[in-house]
């Protein structure tokens, strides 16, 4: 059955690593929903968070192919109930005159922050899980979204990193072995 998976990759921080990962996903026809890259807690190791859709065989194959890239140190298939998966969204919403107060009030329900304002719009920052963000955006669309950017998902397992390997599914480079 096809579902969305969140893969976390620990990769050596070398030029071109992102290109290698993305090129692999493209040429093997895996569907990436979102991808983010940044520093991890270890020097020289970057952390990528990739959301992709597929059945369990597809995801396992994706993990095994990723392990074949020289710079990929570890691949973890994060289980949604064991991880915090978050995203940041910046949204510019039409907010003239009396509507402005209403927009700001709605944003505050979601714990979103107003970053900037112009006579005709406000810019709001919101972070959260998928559902919260979708709910927030549904409300904002009522007023009119002028411009929007989403960061893509980032994720951390809930448990301490020492237990990470057991609590979440570190994809085994040795297959079903």
């Amino acid at each position: 059955m096809e579902s969305t998976h969140t893969l976390v990759l620990l990769v050596e921080d070398h030029p071109g690593v992102l290109n290698r990962v993305v090129s692999l996903m493209r040429r093997r026809s895996f569907n990436i929903d979102s991808i983010t890259v940044g520093h991890s807690e270890q020097v020289g190791v970057s952390r990528m968070t990739i959301q992709l859709r597929g059945n369990s065989e597809d995801i396992e194959q994706a993990g095994k192919q990723l392990y074949k890239l020289l710079e990929v140190v570890k691949v973890i298939d994060l289980q949604p109930n064991e991880a915090m998966i978050r995203e940041l969204v910046l949204v510019k919403v039409a907010a003239k005159g009396a509507v402005r107060a209403e927009v700001v009030q709605t944003a505050s329900i979601y714990g979103a922050r107003v970053l900037d304002a112009t006579p005709s719009s406000v810019m709001i920052e919101m972070s959260g899980g998928e559902e919260e963000i979708e709910s927030f955006l549904t409300m904002m669309r009522i007023y009119g979204i002028r411009e929007m950017v989403r960061s893509g998902k980032v994720a951390l397992p809930r448990v301490l990193s020492k237990k990470t390997d057991r609590q979440t599914r570190q994809m085994n480079p040795l297959a079903a072995d």
Binding site: K64, A175, D177
Partner: peptide, 17 residues
Amino acid sequence: IDPAEIGKNVKTAVPVV
């Protein structure tokens, strides 16, 4: 020797890497 070949095309009962 390549774990990615296991199960790539054919369902495998016993993989040996």
